[in-house]
Amino acid sequence: MNLTLKIWRQAGPQAKGEMVTYPVSDISEDMSFLEMLDVLNEQLNARGEEPIAFDSDCREGICGMCGLMISGKAHGPEVTTTCQLHMRSFSDGDEITIEPWRADAFPVIKDLVVDRSSFDRIIQAGGFISANTGSAPEAHSVPVPKPKADRAFMAAACIGCGACVAACPNASGMLFMGAKITHLGELPQGQPERDARVVSMVSQHDHEGFGGCTNVGACSSACPKEIPLDVINQLNKDLRGALMRGE
């Protein structure tokens, strides 16, 4: 198939960016979206133009490194990561716009590459259980009811890609944060730090410049791991409880 791509080019963090049009031809429907960009980059390289910078690593939908805004949708038209999107989701003659995640808390580094270290700092603020190596009790000493274990797993499936932020009109990181709060809050091991965790993470989230949640739900719709919106309810509930308890 033949396509017209409109791609955000930006030379560096301070540079002014612009959309640039690139026609591509003979694209196979079996290619992944990123392989299609690989093909374009090879062509650019051959004619002496610098290839387009974009992030990807595992290319099997689990590392969370890739993430593009494709014709206005985070990760494109399917519920999956950009690397797992295939060209059979498009038709001959399509015009596709490709942009980086847009959020104050995710500044552009170059072209389609953004800085998501704000997510790491939210985890540093409390997204963990303090258990030094070697201090752990026997694994079977604390049974975990299966429904709680399953819900913890569901929330822990978050890959930290940032699609939720990119999709949100407020650029909120509440789904990402809610997933971690839910994962650790469902487990008995997560209880001792539960109140402190939510207060500290929310404070860091706001400090990073993420917006608040206004229950739009675009985050959950865009999430490649289908993290449900109710993790944000859990977050709010935990926060309210923690503040009432004077945390």
Partner: peptide, 22 residues
């Protein structure tokens, strides 16, 4: 065996049976 203990203490959500054990 120590690895499993350590990971459970960190909150790794391993698959569990209905009795709550791994």
């Amino acid at each position: 065996a120590n690895i499993i203990d350590q990971c459970v203490a960190q909150g790794v959500p391993f698959a569990r049976e209905y009795g709550g054990l791994l």
